[in-house]
């Protein structure tokens, strides 16, 4: 673990990515704890559509709400959606991928063909279809994004799991009388931590992207709550008059995704399964 962290910090993009992600997580936590400069819903009516000032670092929006406070809440919201959806997708995908590889036969065929079907849709379309069924909202967008990414995790897990399954140490464990659950969690899952970590990080970047898109379309987080996509949607008609409404959330979305992408790239370099030997 220590060596891993050391490697990460020595990797240039790992360092930058980790720093960005860390800052975002701190901002998100501060926002969740209510430690924003102002109440994000409070309307300073006389200060509507003000540019950045000392009182409001990122200006105010059309209702006179503080943009910085709303941005912090928005980052918290977007991160909450990203982490929950990717966590859910990783959990379900891992379970499906592991069991598909382990039990094989009919179950494997069934799971993988279902995943093929899900992968036959462009991601955003599948999310839209899901939202059409369940209705818009924050919770729905978590489920929709998880639904879209589950097949990817299933594939990422199944491939390596299939090859690990045939290795000697698994046979040995089986002949000792270890249960399937024990082998699956102890031997297979543990060896899949590296590819999963990389995939989770990259999926977080994608998830932030999808969340902001869904909210931008009005299908994700609903007002008066704040999310980065929603803030961007609000800026559309005001961008000439109040460019700060566009610029700050745009930079926030971009940097957040960049952070996870950089981190994911670095992790892939460090944990690349092709370079790492499988350890029992």
């Amino acid at each position: 673990m220590k060596a891993f962290l050391h490697g990460l910090l020595r990797h240039p993009s790992g360092r930058i990515g980790a720093a960005i992600v860390l800052v975002y997580i701190i901002v998100a936590l501060l926002a969740q704890a209510g430690l924003t400069p102002y109440d994000p819903l409070k309307q300073f009516r006389i200060e509507r559509l003000q540019g950045p000032t000392f009182a409001h670092w990122m200006g105010t929006d059309m209702f006179g709400r503080d943009v910085l406070s709303r941005l912090m809440i928005g980052i918290g919201q977007s991160f909450m959606v990203a982490f929950s959806s990717v966590g859910l997708a990783a959990a379900i995908g891992t379970l499906l991928g592991l069991t598909a590889a382990w039990f094989g036969h009919l179950w494997d065929g069934l799971v993988m063909r279902c995943m093929d079907v899900l992968l036959a849709f462009p991601a955003i379309l599948l999310a839209l279809l899901f939202i059409a069924v369940v209705g818009p909202g924050t919770f729905t967008s978590i489920l929709a994004i998880a639904f879209v990414y589950t097949p990817i995790f299933t594939r990422v897990v199944r491939g390596p799991a299939l090859s690990i399954k045939t290795r000697d140490f698994v046979d040995a464990a089986r002949s000792f009388g270890s249960s399937s659950t024990y082998i699956l969690t102890r031997h297979l899952l543990l060896n899949l931590v590296a590819p999963l970590t990389v995939q989770v990080t990259l999926a977080l970047a994608w998830s932030l992207l999808t969340e902001s898109g869904l909210s931008f379309l009005g299908l994700g987080t609903q007002p008066p709550n704040s999310s980065l996509g929603l803030m961007l949607a609000d800026s559309v008609n005001l961008m000439e008059m109040a460019p700060w409404l566009l610029v700050f959330p745009a930079i926030a979305v971009m940097l957040g995704i960049l952070g996870f992408n950089l981190l994911g790239d670095a992790l892939r370099d460090i944990l690349d399964p092709r370079m790492r030997r499988v350890v029992a």
């Binding site: 992207l209 902001s212 559309v236 566009l246 745009a250 971009m254 995704i257």
Partner: peptide
């Protein structure tokens, strides 16, 4: 890392 709709905006 920039969503295409952000680039468009």
């Amino acid at each position: 890392s920039t969503p295409s709709f952000v680039i468009g905006l």
